[in-house]
Design a protein around this nucleic acid. Sequence first.
DNA 1: GAAAAATCATTAGGTAGCTACTATTATGAA
DNA 2: TTCATAATAGTAGCTACCTAATGATTTTTC
Lengths: 163, 163
Amino acid sequence: MNIKEPATFSDEQISRLMFDNNRMWRTQLNFVLSEYDLTASAWAVIRVLRDEGQGCTQKELASSLAIEGPTLVKLLDNLERLGWIERRVAPTDRRAKTIWLIESALPQIAEADRKLGMTRHQIISALSEDEQAEFGRLLNKVRTNLERMNHEASRYGGIPPRD
Amino acid sequence: MNIKEPATFSDEQISRLMFDNNRMWRTQLNFVLSEYDLTASAWAVIRVLRDEGQGCTQKELASSLAIEGPTLVKLLDNLERLGWIERRVAPTDRRAKTIWLIESALPQIAEADRKLGMTRHQIISALSEDEQAEFGRLLNKVRTNLERMNHEASRYGGIPPRD
DNA sequence: GAAAAATCATTAGGTAGCTACTATTATGAA
DNA sequence: TTCATAATAGTAGCTACCTAATGATTTTTC
């Protein structure tokens, strides 16, 4: 059908497809969210708070998001500055802080969620229903493997130190 | 088989799978490349120079990599500093610079390529041969759609200005 | 009970992507 | 020929990810 589409893909091509898709996908979400002064990463924080319950500590939140503590700190700094969330010192542990959504932001969150859903749907609509299910299944299989591999590379999560 | 694996995946779950896979995938490649003081992004530059011919301008190189000019500038700064590539002023256009691999780095590049291939293969080996082909096909379909969508969002590639 | 160890959030600094802007050089039109 | 416009590389500054190290507090251990 499309003369440019190869029959199979090398590991290298698949690798590149993953990276490029991710960039463009993020760009689309950022475009929608820019109306709310939000980004895809910041949205992920809001979504977890909304769906998995507020009042968790930063440590728990970072774990839910599968990101590291310092990454979350900056996301929360921005979200707090813009009035989406607030930090409260945990009552039982003065080291820890619990994170809460600002009540008055809930309507905007619902609105953003709706728009995001439309965009995600538009992206995914490149695939048929069956293909979507298969795509999710394959992504999940790869993720399981990657999680195992990352875990085996001991605690070496990212770019190692230089000296 | 696996009780934790859902039968289908929502748009949101697929979105999250894309982002998480991408992060972990990059971590794996960075781990291999750290031995050479390289990163996944820097490697992409080297690979294009090796496979698609040296001596192209930065403009052309950025286009091949599907990244923006300023992103490439920093990658080249590091690659040049570490002795992988060199910039030469283009003979016909003094604005432009052509990019060349350092000859003596070629053996190390071949070695890194071999190790990277093994790691990519290990990641992908979560899928059967047929699944790999299908995975590539689906990723490619999504990319085509994302490219169209990104293009339609006019030149608005990323995060819009704040004021 | 006091010292040592662990834990939570943060800061510092690195790569990787982006947009907007600047300086230099080419090009083309009056 | 001159002058405006376009194009190339680079700079500044933003988000987003990471590791390593710090400071404050809690927990453990002796």
